[in-house]
Design a protein around this nucleic acid. Structure first.
Lengths: 227, 227
DNA sequence: CCAAAAGTGTTACTCGTACACCCATGT
DNA sequence: ACATGGGTGTACGAGTAACACTTTTGG
């Protein structure tokens, strides 16, 4: 449950201190639907329940580092985006002791959506965001807020690129937008908007299937000034 | 420095726990300039330095409650707006022990800008945001981020109402906008925009001075649906 | 030839912005 | 009378939203 040196030191304080942890809402896409990565808890409380990956803050790292480390340890995923979006501090949200949770939003590109890699946890699985199992602690609430934060950001389009594989069609991008925002968008307007934004550029490659081939695009590297 | 029961209990944990505190960036307006409330520290470290008001989280309250309580204890102010905007968690930001700071943005209406009321701290004072003294800890950084957050929100106008007295002229409101966003706005456009927003309504009252009397407006009570 | 998804332009409307003069009061 | 801020309307451009048909491939 924690990665501190396990030789059970005793840490004494004059006033009560909460434990501080980061929890990760890691989103990805599969089949055009929004998914979130859950782990099955291997210890009490909530043994066997699904929960967000996360863990306690180490003494030498800040919260961003903690989130990155937990991400690595529990899922082995490389994420394209990681940002703190909320804090959950109800005094009794963890029955063991007081735990303040700093919640992070993470996005995984669709071509590296295979978690098992470096997995610490007993069990890791992608679940549809709109069909979740019962969750440990207040993690259902955290996911609601994470989804809302993601939706808010998706309006700006840029964040969606973090859910795309290296090369992608504009249809895939639009489908990501629709999966996240709920609403369906007009194809022509969407394409015009994303092209006008300068965030992507066309490659020479085409994607083929049993339909007309589609232009593949990729994220344009960030430019700092001009052009 | 802390408001916990002072009978020095000993709190023992298996792993190191940080202290958790909330710090408050409390903004107000005076003479059309943006000010922030600072306290002078009455203890080590940084004895005598200016700092943001704030204090440690109690075991039975969540972070919002902690921020509200510290606000009351240290300044006695009633605020019209209080919202968490960031977390500061560098491992060495406090020389005594590790402290995670959850930072809040607070706004005080221009007619209750008198802090001394219920003051806990040795000294409390409003300072211009663009002319600050040296500050304790990483509070200069916290203020930079608070100001940026405030500016971002001020674009939407609504938050500005929290800096206004109960009744105010549109010129005052515009001047607040300009103080926060730096840019100067066109009077006609600003008025059209704020009126179109439906956030305010005209009262029967006028403000008088050595110039043409100005219509006083007040915040329109929130309506939930429709007209 | 059918199914499936790709691709493409124009028009109407809304919103933001630029811009300059007269008005009512206090001194 | 003059100084001080209050108050007002319009025209242009940019960006957003609505709208339907043709194209290319695989099976």
């Amino acid at each position: 449950m924690s990665t501190h040196e396990p030789e059970a030191g005793r840490f004494v304080y004059k006033y009560p201190h909460p434990a501080v942890a980061s929890d990760l809402a890691i989103f990805g896409l599969r089949g055009g639907r929004l998914m979130i990565l859950l782990i099955r808890r291997g210890g009490e409380p909530f043994l066997g329940s699904w929960a967000l990956p996360g863990g306690f803050l180490n003494p030498t790292e800040d919260l961003d580092a903690c989130a990155r480390r937990e991400l690595q340890e529990e899922t082995g995923l490389e994420v394209a985006y990681l940002k703190q979006f909320g804090i959950f501090s109800a005094p009794d949200r963890d029955p063991r002791e007081r735990v303040i949770s700093v919640a992070y939003l993470a996005l995984v590109p669709a071509d590296r959506v295979n978690p098992e890699a470096g997995s610490d946890a007993a069990d890791v699985a992608w679940r549809f965001v709109d069909d979740l199992p019962p969750l440990a602690f207040d993690h259902a609430e955290i996911i609601r807020e994470a989804t809302a934060a993601l939706r808010r950001e998706a309006e700006g389009l840029e964040i969606l690129l973090n859910l795309m594989p290296r090369r992608f069609t504009l249809s895939r991008l639009q489908s990501a937008y629709e999966a996240i925002c709920g609403a369906s968008a007009d194809k022509r307007n969407f394409r015009a908007r994303i092209l006008a934004s300068g965030l992507v550029e066309a490659t020479e490659e085409m994607e083929r299937g049993s339909h007309r081939p589609a232009q593949l695009y990729e994220r344009r590297p960030k430019v700092l000034n001009g052009e």
